[in-house]
Amino acid sequence: MKRIAGAAVMLSAGILAMALVVSMFELPPPAVRLPQMVQEKLPQSGVEHPVTAVLLNFRGYDTLLEVAVLLLALLGMLAGERPRPAAPDRAPTDPVLPGLTRFLVPLMGLTAVYLLWAGAHRPGGAFQAAAVLAAAAVLLHLTDLLPAWTSLRLRLRTGLAGGLLVFITVAAWLLGEGRLLQYPVAHAGSLILFIEVALTISLGLILAGLFLFLPDDDERRR
């Protein structure tokens, strides 16, 4: 029975793939040409890189919701976990790994700042910078230099939610001036940078939290 169901699923997946590929090759050229529009409006967007312009200005509203999605994933993860006592500090076991980490982490911090700054005119931006920061935190945790997070103090909560709060506040303030997330051309660049800095910190904390809040499996074994 299971075999037949499996074969049916595979067969349907195969048919779906074939139909999709065949239909794609019959597509005429699109009627709407968005890349041209992006190029035309790029000077008014406040950034020079077209992808960043779409991400934070033309479709900045998507990005606002997306930040909420990330915070929500952390909330969903924390919601069912029981509070637990702080794990005892473990002595680093291997001298090489912590040494290497101590050397790498400042470099990662520097990379994050560069990525944030680069976002305005080449690939980069808040999300990439935050990912590097979070990776540094995970590295620190894995080498026992940073303990797992066990409590949500006010400072941490503010840090996690701060980026979204800043983003919402700017959106609401701009609404007073015109439209939701309508950046004035003169200040678009600096406003976007301001939001990106706040986002980098919060997103870094959220992404790190998705790992550092996880209960340690070792606790049971001990």
Partner: peptide, 22 residues
């Protein structure tokens, strides 16, 4: 536009949700 209910119906719940978390 500043009072457009369309935009506030989205911003308001997001705002109090984030604030409640803090």
């Amino acid at each position: 536009a500043a009072l457009d209910p369309l935009a506030w119906l989205i911003l308001l719940p997001m705002f109090w949700a984030t604030l409640a978390f803090v």
